[in-house]
Design a protein around this nucleic acid. Structure first.
Lengths: 140, 140
DNA sequence: TTTACTGCAAATCTTTTGCATCAAC
DNA sequence: GTTGATGCAAAAGATTTGCAGTAAA
């Protein structure tokens, strides 16, 4: 069972304490395939460690953000989502009906990026772009 | 001075009451060049009508959404933004340093739209897409 | 006159913060 | 033993809702 080893050792090396709460939060982040919200991490953590408080989750995320160990993304929906910073940036298609998120390959956006630079001399930061729409299932 | 005539008459035709509060909210929406938030509308309205409550703004927006008279967009940042449903497509490039917004032609996005449909069977709603980045001036 | 609409206050929901206690080092 | 980390409770900011009073038609 991996307890978010890479992030944990980074924390430890920089003098931060490895509390059981932090280890479980790291585990939730690293085991998540997709971007995960604070609330979702919290649910996973309380299942094993019932008296943990959600403010600990937020404080841990604040720390991990500052150290560039996790990336915070605002995909809308009124809550932030998080993923390990080293797990590369990806783009998302978000279905506005069912909320499904589809990972999007960078190659699809590269032409747009180039066009914006060429036509408008604008350097787009597409790292966390989220495109809203309808997925195939929700279109019936 | 136009008081949001088109939306107002649509409301009136459908039997909804044209209160002064609603007229001022409509004015704020229609006079906004860009997308406007509920809080911004509220600021404009209280300036002239000090005892209006922000819940009236939200309830009016709820009604206008249901009637497809305004469009609600979640561009992140923890608040929704609104604009008249008939005011067509807005693509924007937004400079994260100086805040400048550059209008973007649809033709630049059409290839992306097609690619998303082809590769992911996803119908993108790019109407309110905002792309963050750096404009030429801010790149020095 | 009727009842849709409003203002007010209080409730949600996500995230943040103050403070006293506790535990990792 | 230090001092950073935690739990708890309360605050903050955006949006929603219950309720009784008000005004548009």
């Amino acid at each position: 069972m991996e307890y978010g080893r890479d992030i944990a050792s980074a924390l430890s090396k920089q003098g931060y304490r490895l509390t059981p709460q932090r280890l479980m939060i790291l585990e939730a982040i690293e085991n998540s395939d997709d971007h995960i919200s604070a609330e979702e991490m919290y649910s996973q953590v309380v299942a094993k460690f019932p008296n943990v408080n959600i403010s600990t989750v937020y404080r841990t995320l604040e720390l991990l953000k500052q150290l560039d160990l996790v990336t915070e993304t605002d995909l809308g929906g009124g809550r932030f989502r998080y993923h390990p910073a080293n797990k590369g940036h990806h783009h998302h298609l978000i279905c506005r009906r069912c909320g499904a998120t589809i990972d999007l390959d960078e190659t699809l956006l590269a032409p747009l990026e180039k066009a914006l630079l060429r036509e408008h001399d604008f350097v787009a930061e597409l790292r966390h772009l989220a495109i809203i729409g309808l997925c195939s299932r929700c279109r019936q």
